[in-house]
Structure formats: C-alpha cells, structure tokens
C-alpha cells in the first residue's frame, strides 16, 4: 500500500458516513427551505420571519443565551480553578459536578418543574416557613420574570459542566512555571488569573464558548418543560412548524436561520479569542 494514500483511505469510512448521514440530509433540508411547490423561492424565510412569534422567540433565545452563557462561563472558570488547586478528592468533586451532564435536557426541565410548580418543593418550603399563605403558580403568564429565571437556572445547572470539563483540561495543561514566574515578578493572584490563565486558556475558552453558545441557541426541552407556550424560543417554533403545523418548508427555513446565527456567533467568538499571529499557546 502506498503510504501517500493510506491516510486518505483511513479517513474514507468516516467521510462516507458523514456525507451520508449529515451532508446529504443537510442538503435535503436546505433544498426544502429554499423551495415552494417545486420551485426556488425565499417564501419560507419570508413567512417564518414575518410571523408575529418570530421576533419574540428570537429575542427570548438571545436574551436567554446572553443571561446564561456569561454566568456559566464565570462559574465554570471558578470551578475549574478550584478543582485545579485541589490535591485530594479532585476526581470525586469533578464527577459530582458533572452529574447534570448525564441527565437529558427534558429530564432536567422536569426536575426544575418539580421545584417551581404549584405543588412543588419551593411552594411547600415557602408555605412551611410561612412566607406564603397558599401555593402560588410561579410559572404563569403573570410572572414572566420567574419563568425566565427558572429556565435560566435550569440551564445553568444542567449545562455548566460541559464548559467545566473543557476548561479543567485546558487549565491542567498550563505549566506551573508560568505561575511561579508571574508570582516572582509581582503578579497578584487576580493578575495571575487575568494575565496568565485567561490568555493561555484561549483555545479551551474558544471551544467551550462555541459549544455552549451553539447549544444555547438550540435550547428547547428545558423551555418546553418550564415555560411551555409562555416563553417561545426559536427551536420551539421550529418544532411547532414541523409537527403541529406540518409545514416542512418553514421548519427547514427556521433550522437554517438557527444554523446561520450559530455560525455567525462561532466566527465572532473565534475572532474575539484568536491567538495573536506568531504566538504559540
């Protein structure tokens, strides 16, 4: 076997797999989105964007991402730094912290529903300490703030660990000597974090943020469980087009819009956290 062709031969199976199960369906979806009655058209996009629920679901998705991702980033950095300093029990803590990762997003939504619903833990607790007279429905249209907060909390609880594991791995790769040098040359612990950890963590931060932001735009099950129709998001609308309204073309157009937003944010994050030319991190 010619060694020049061997690498290509070895990646052939996975390439075929990806083409068959990802690229081909993707082309079908794109085709569907851009065609009406068998002809090329932008009508599907005009329809979904012109629908009254589009601006509010777009806004909700963005607001949620804007509220959740920075909190998760800060928490994940804090937790990663703490874990990195631990000598004993490091693995145990990591396992405990990553448990929510093993729970599906719908299950996570239901867990938090059990806390916030009218007969849930929160109500019983507040009633028991006498904070409220009778059970209240927190997750109603009268309390949009609480609905938003409940969804954000559930998301933070569920998906911070995905960033944590990436950042823990990244921090572990930073040589100890950089910190010692920074300390000797007068950097306070905070300066060591901002001047050494953060810049050297840029590749991991890129990965973690891109992954997390894309997932944030795809939020669906947690919102469905906690907010139902009170809090429309882009992915929920896509689902509604496909299964409630049976409008394949519109659902495909929504899917492509979400993809476009994800790509745009990925590029922004990559650009913002790029490593300067020539620097090797």
């Amino acid at each position: 076997m010619n060694a020049r062709y061997l690498p290509y031969l070895l990646i052939l199976p996975v390439t075929l797999f990806l083409c068959l199960f990802f690229l081909y369906p993707f082309i079908l979806v794109a085709q569907q989105a851009f065609s009406v009655d068998g002809g090329w058209s932008l009508k599907n996009f005009e329809d979904v964007i012109g629908y009254w629920k589009f601006p509010i679901s777009f806004q909700n998705t963005m607001l949620l991402a804007a509220a959740v991702v920075p909190v998760q980033l800060a928490l994940a950095l804090l937790m990663a730094t703490m874990v990195n300093r631990m000598k004993k029990g490091r693995d145990l803590i990591l396992y405990v912290w990553t448990i929510p990762l093993g729970i599906s997003d719908l299950a996570a939504g239901i867990i938090w529903l059990a806390i916030f619903e009218q007969s849930g833990f929160l109500n019983s607790m507040m009633q028991a300490v006498g904070a409220i007279d009778r059970p209240t429905n927190f997750l109603s249209y009268q309390n949009p703030g609480i609905v938003f907060l409940a969804i954000a909390l559930a998301e933070i609880w569920r998906a911070t660990a995905i960033m944590l594991v990436i950042l823990v791995a990244g921090i572990g790769l930073i040589p100890k000597e950089y910190y010692e040098a920074a300390e000797v040359f007068g950097a306070s612990p905070w300066k060591r974090f901002t001047r050494v950890t953060l810049p050297l963590l840029r590749p991991s931060l890129q990965t973690a943020l891109v992954l997390r932001v894309i997932l944030a735009f795809e939020i669906f099950a947690v919102v469905a469980a906690l907010g139902g129709t009170l809090f429309p998001v882009l992915m929920g609308e896509t689902y509604a087009y496909q299964f409630d309204l049976l409008n394949n073309g519109a659902a495909a157009a929504m899917a492509l819009i979400i993809l476009a937003i994800s790509i745009a944010f990925t590029l922004i994050i990559m650009r913002a956290l790029r490593v300067p030319k020539g620097a090797t991190i």
Binding site: E177, Y178, E180, A181, E183, V184, F185, R202, V275, A279
Partner: peptide, 21 residues
C-alpha cells in the same frame, strides 16, 4: 513576605517565557 516584596528576580530552568506575550 510574598516573592514580589523580597527585591528578587528569578530565571527559571524552563525559561517560563510567556508564550502569549
């Protein structure tokens, strides 16, 4: 005292030259 208040500077075996600067 912390290292910065000791009036010292140090050269490390693996240089510890920051790669991002």
């Amino acid at each position: 005292l912390p290292p910065k208040d000791r009036g010292i500077a140090m050269v490390f075996q693996n240089y510890a030259v920051f790669p991002h600067l």
